[in-house]
Design a protein around this nucleic acid. Structure first.
Length: 287
DNA sequence: AGCCAGGCCCTCC
DNA sequence: GGAGGGCCTGGC
């Protein structure tokens, strides 16, 4: 067990339950998840975080965890840049401390390929099934979870066995993308350093990856804070809160271009707050 | 029963 | 270039 003192603004709940990542489970006041090959239990305590990790010891895992949680970013600076926008200002106040995760790109990519025409419970189930079938076991006391399988592993299984997991038509996309990634066609390290446009071009060349999915991957795993994924929720939020007067309909691509221009280098944070706010406004949200 | 979902891809205009 | 239909599966 280890306790981390956190002086920075942070809210674990909204960070882990705002649809960015799909392997966190909440029970008895703790979140349990699998990141960087570790089974992790974490909870927020006053003034900080308490966590367990396995198989790595907490001392060596701590920097990875903080990085994953997006703790390197100065949220006050982000808020300062965004809060001129009145609508965002109130969302920021409401969900203060919600951070953008920095996830592992490969898992993030496949997760959002799975997200197409789906919903969070199903996506979570799909990802967990993939791990159960092809990942490697990790134990922590009596708890057992499995890692997310690497590109080589997923490239080696055939599409039909993915379909059997209930992935539907996404199985073909996953299979094709896994092959291209394991062939070395995509270098996530490189994409993380590349420009937004360069990374976008590369990602949308993959099967099952369009503008929305690519922007999710860039925002949640490739350090592109201006990335602005436009899904149905953002579509609604912008239409209702920003384009109320507009007569003609704006396309999703148009929305993304507008948003990056309007919100600037932290458009991705704006996206996350708008997304979260608009979803919570609906009753029947499935967390 | 039939529609629609955290989209993408293909076809056709 | 952009609108429209099809696509797996599950839930209402």
């Amino acid at each position: 067990m280890m306790i981390i003192q956190v002086t920075r603004l942070f809210d674990l709940n909204s960070t882990l339950q705002s649809g960015q990542a799909f392997r966190w489970r909440f029970s008895d006041g703790w979140f349990e998840g699998v990141v960087f090959g570790n089974l992790v239990n974490i909870r927020e305590i006053s003034g900080g975080l308490e966590f367990y990790s396995s198989p790595n010891d907490e001392l060596s895992f701590r920097p990875l965890l903080l990085d994953y949680l997006g703790m390197a970013v100065d949220l006050d600076k982000v808020y300062l840049a965004l809060s001129e926008d009145v609508i965002l200002g109130s969302a920021i106040k409401k969900y203060s401390g919600m951070r953008i995760l920095r996830q592992e790109p490969w898992e993030c990519l496949i997760s959002f390929i799975c997200s197409s025409a789906s919903n969070i419970p199903r996506i979570s189930k799909n990802i967990e099934s993939i791990c159960d079938a092809f990942g490697e076991e990790i134990r922590f006391g009596s708890r057992v979870r499995r890692t997310f399988p690497n590109p080589e592993k997923l490239a080696s299984v055939d599409e039909s066995s993915l379909r059997e997991l209930g992935l539907g038509y996404r199985a073909g996309y996953i299979s094709a993308t896994a092959k291209r990634v394991s062939d070395g066609e995509v270098d996530f390290q490189k994409l993380s350093k590349a420009s937004y446009e360069e990374a976008l071009d590369r990602l949308v060349s993959l099967e099952g990856v369009g503008d929305k999915v690519a922007n999710c991957v860039m925002l949640f795993s490739l350090d592109k804070s201006q990335a602005f994924p436009v899904d149905v929720w953002i579509d609604r939020a912008l239409r209702e809160w920003y384009f109320k007067e507009e007569r003609k309909t704006v396309s999703r691509l148009g929305m993304r271009l507008w948003a990056i221009d309007h919100f600037g280098p932290y458009a991705g944070y704006a996206n996350q707050y708008l997304f979260h706010g608009r979803r919570l406004q609906d009753r029947r949200l499935q967390i």
